[in-house]
Design a protein around this nucleic acid. Structure first.
Ligand SMILES: NC(=O)c1ccc[n+]([C@@H]2O[C@H](COP(=O)([O-])OP(=O)(O)OC[C@H]3O[C@@H](n4cnc5c(N)ncnc54)[C@H](O)[C@@H]3O)[C@@H](O)[C@H]2O)c1
Ligand SMILES: NC(=O)c1ccc[n+]([C@@H]2O[C@H](COP(=O)([O-])OP(=O)(O)OC[C@H]3O[C@@H](n4cnc5c(N)ncnc54)[C@H](O)[C@@H]3O)[C@@H](O)[C@H]2O)c1
Lengths: 263, 263
DNA sequence: AGTCACTTGTGAATGCGTTCACAAAATCGC
DNA sequence: GCGATTTTGTGAACGCATTCACAAGTGACT
């Protein structure tokens, strides 16, 4: 009734939909105890490799949980949370079970505990610094977007190659020239690069980021980025999303299509 | 070497996740001959349900193929195309085989034929009309974005609830009040709704779209949308993408993590 | 015409992810 | 205390997707 679409394969496409991250060898070694000491008796789990699909959903759960917390809800069952997140409840329980046993049978989960656990798992306690490269149309919207700060990130630098744009102040930051990229990355300890340049510049910018040691990239340019092993790229691609919708739209029109079955 | 990440679960998410579309029953009836008559002798396939993951990748192939066509390349092997798209070549061949046999053994695929076939499959020959609801920061960027037109879509209407925004002209269109949504949808034969309102308004707008018969929605607001069966929702969620990157970033730092295996 | 090098298309194998279904906990009411 | 009720956590079944590996075409060259 309320599925949402899974990110598509590997970018949610190659990478995408919106889907998995470009990860190298999957390192299936024995589990290593986590850093964060689980408080109380429950300290198991937070082990090795969380399934990629689970990681993506955890972020969704976190969003839903934040809303619940705001509303003063303190406890939630897997059924309720799953409905709100648009997933199957068994799926949700299995996801959460990867983090350990934080639910109470017969009762449900404590919202605050879950938020804590998920934030810890996703590494959101560290507030990573983000650099945005390409401050055009889209870049301006992103730069002014409050969603970064409220979701565990800190937009620390804006960069553009166009001298006319350098010096402009947006949301408290001054646009710097992209030649300064290496310096900026080191100075500000940038962990994530967001690419919002035209497609033809994207690979170039990506290479520079990688050369400076950035291993996490979010790409808005419609280009497939090649990166070495160990670097994670996720892409947001408007055209691909629309084309997927177009495919299904076409299907709906066809006689014998899925709609006929419904009635 | 050049994987990209798959969309996450239903938001690929999520999934993307970014990932799959919210499809109802999967209708596994017997195959129905397609409308478009395959030219020449090859007319098989274009059958029923293409795997969701394949659909997402087809859009990527199409992008890569367009670039190749521009460069004057007329023929491409699965190995080359796969490398350019960041996928495994066997995967690519299997994807393409779903459309029929359009390759030549020992040679490869004709770029023009492939472009044709994929556009047909994705329904891009019809140039669907898109309505954008919420013309704020992000909405402005989207409205001014050339990528719609060049990728098979026609942005036909801009709507906003803020009277101060109504009447504004952007990219040749005048912003209309969102009360007019039903009229606009019927007049302009809107097939796809793009939601770029704040999260708290998203479900409302979504409901209106659905009530007006729109069955394909692209949602930029950080909210999980509930829709009836038969309606496809895809979401683009910046925070989720960043949080997935954050997770992997954290993993990289951990002793015993995947990087240690590489060297 | 025959060989060689190349590349597609696809069965089979494997892996990943979701869903089912139920036993094991926990609370509540009596 | 105890049984009824609720809900978690998870083994097992299932289905989808990726990858392997190779037989079957195709063109080029001789
Ligand atoms: N605008 C949208 O809504 C939208 C939507 C989806 C995708 N995109 C994609 O996002 C990207 C940006 O879109 P836009 O509309 O903002 O384009 P834009 O042309 O307005 O902005 C691009 C900016 O990148 C800068 N730039 C160019 N080369 C650079 C380099 N090497 N280093 C640093 N900066 C550089 C330019 O100076 C410019 O300011 C494009 O690839 C576009 O396809 C945009
Ligand atoms: N700006 C970004 O870069 C960015 C990035 C990712 C996600 N988002 C999300 O996209 C959405 C829009 O972001 P934004 O920065 O453009 O916000 P914004 O506040 O600048 O724009 C929102 C617009 O929606 C309009 N609106 C509000 N309620 C409406 C309704 N019921 N019907 C029609 N229009 C309505 C408002 O009048 C406003 O013009 C938000 O949900 C935001 O979280 C934005």
């Amino acid at each position: 009734m309320t599925d949402q679409h899974p990110s598509t394969p590997d970018e949610a496409l190659p990478g995408e939909p919106s889907g998995g991250v470009r990860r190298a060898r999957a390192a299936l070694g024995r589990a290593v105890r986590s850093t964060l000491p689980g408080r109380g008796e429950a300290r198991r789990a937070e082990e090795r490799t969380l399934p990629e699909a689970t990681v993506a959903r955890l972020a969704v759960y976190l969003r839903v949980l934040s809303v619940l917390a705001e509303q003063g809800v303190t406890t939630v069952s897997s059924e309720e949370l799953a409905a709100a997140a648009g997933v199957n409840s068994a799926n949700l329980r299995k996801d959460l079970s990867h983090l350990g046993s934080y639910g109470t049978r017969g009762v449900g989960y404590e919202v605050a505990v879950l938020v804590d656990r998920i934030e810890g798992t996703l590494g959101l306690t560290r507030r990573l610094a983000v650099a945005l490269i390409g401050v055009g149309n889209l870049g301006h919207a992103l730069a002014g977007y409050g969603g970064f700060a409220t979701r565990g990130f800190h937009i620390a630098a804006l960069l553009d190659a166009d001298p006319a744009r350098v010096g402009e102040r947006i949301a408290g930051l001054t646009v710097r020239h992209s030649d300064e990229l290496p310096a900026v990355i080191r100075e500000l300890d940038i962990a994530i690069g967001v690419i919002a340049t035209p497609a033809h510049a994207a690979q170039d910018v990506c290479d520079q980021l990688v050369a400076c040691g950035v291993t996490s990239i979010l790409n808005f340019a419609p280009a497939v980025l090649a990166v070495p092993d160990g670097v994670d790229v996720r892409k947001v691609d408007l055209a691909i999303e629309l084309q997927i919708l177009s495919f299904h739209e076409q299907r709906k029109l066809r006689p014998g299509g899925p709609l006929e079955d419904v009635g």
